[in-house]
Design a protein around this nucleic acid. Structure first.
Lengths: 239, 239
DNA sequence: CAGGATCCTAAACGATACTG
DNA sequence: CAGTATCGTTTAGGATCCTG
């Protein structure tokens, strides 16, 4: 039994951390932010967590009203976990942390776990609300086998899973390249030149898309300015 | 030596948690959000952390560029830690977590740690940017020995430490009452009636202030609606 | 006052084995 | 598939003492 450890501070932050501050918990919630997921799906995306720990965390999150179990048996799928509204409220915070953490992403090591669906969260995190154009258009992303898109409408942008209807930009890439670009280790230009990124669509639309995501599409200033925080050299290329 | 454990995931969130996801780390940063603090100040506000762990965490945060050491000797004070710009970027996220965690604040237990300066963060977290009036005015709070205020100006609200110039509202209370009100265990009205809160100033200004902080000044709906998420019964009253 | 060294305990980890 | 139970190993957490 988990002898629930608490900070025992009369403070909102400490209480929040008593609920979601333990190791693995926010990563579990990240998985659920992508939609309902089965126990084994979550387990597969969190190498090293151990079955008992995952079960305990999920149970605790359900108990605290952050997640709930849904029984989809009958619809083809079976048991799954999903976030409650209280859990969904963490989305902007987790996206903010994701964005903040981009600065600390080192270049890919061989032992790193990588899942294409994380690209969806990365894209959501990178969206700059202040840079949304007033057009109505969609940018589609195909990261390995995952397809998602960003919809611009009414001056607001939002990320959606699945293919876009009539996208003005389609970007095809692999998960490693996607995160490399997001973390500033690679520019879209360089990724295209090395064949890791294929961009289709109107040039101006591509530029708007890069702008929206805070990417310097052509120059390499991004790499230069971010390199300060990390290592001296790096080796690229991945399978 | 701390054999830094990492999630080893190529993802912004995992990287963020590798930096600030360990136990105590965000609470240390909370302390630094209130301004530069000495080692022993932080230690005093985090009962149970252990000196070596605090030293290790601080060292790690400095190493990762989230905090830095400042030498204030000569100005009367001495060595202190403060946040770097990268650390300051966590402010909205930590305030968001603080707000989110308010729902999970149980009523005060005798063993809970409580610091009046946390009220400042709580107030900052409760500020609803959508409910800022277009006036120019200041609300002052005196929580035990701590004084801070909220300044409304140009349609924006911000929290500031210290006394306000010409405040339209002055609220005097103790730290426990302050957090109780913020977490919905108590209404301002009830706190006044029991003598734990003294409000001075124009009635309309008080109402605007409550509105800004998301407080139902008169009704008890707040308590009723929040009670659902927690316990079946509760015993109030404390010293 | 700042923080290093030590020691012990309590968790987390990872593997495996088991159950409805 | 969705967990529970157990166990050996590792690591973090916490208390205490010590030093510059």
């Amino acid at each position: 039994m988990a002898t629930k450890r608490s900070y025992q501070q009369y403070c909102g932050l400490a209480s929040a951390l008593d609920v979601v501050g333990e190791r693995w918990t926010l990563l579990i919630i990240r998985e659920l932010l992508l939609g309902p997921a089965r126990y084994s799906d979550v387990l597969a995306n969190l190498p090293g967590i151990g079955t008992n720990l995952l079960a305990e965390r999920l149970k605790f999150l359900v108990q605290r009203g952050v997640a709930r179990q849904v029984d989809l048996r009958g619809t083809g799928a079976q048991l799954a976990y999903e976030l409650t509204p209280a859990g969904e409220e963490l989305r902007p915070l987790i996206l903010g942390l994701t964005r903040w953490g981009m600065e600390f992403v080192d270049d890919l090591r061989s032992e790193d776990t990588l899942r294409p669906q994380w690209g969806f969260l990365a894209a959501e995190a990178m969206l700059d609300p202040a840079k949304v154009s007033d057009r109505h258009e969609r940018y589609e992303f195909r990261v390995d086998d995952q397809v998602f898109h960003i919809e611009i409408s009414g001056g607001r942008a939002r990320g959606l899973r699945g293919a876009a209807v009539d996208p003005v930009v389609v970007a095809k890439t692999d998960a490693a390249t996607f995160v490399r670009i997001g973390s500033g280790h690679l520019t879209p230009l360089l990724a295209m030149l090395t064949g890791h990124l294929v961009l289709e669509g109107d040039v101006d639309a591509v530029l708007r898309c890069c702008e929206l995501l805070g990417l310097e599409s052509a120059s390499s200033r991004t790499v230069a300015s971010r390199a300060v925080s990390a290592r001296p050299a790096s080796s690229a290329a991945a399978g």
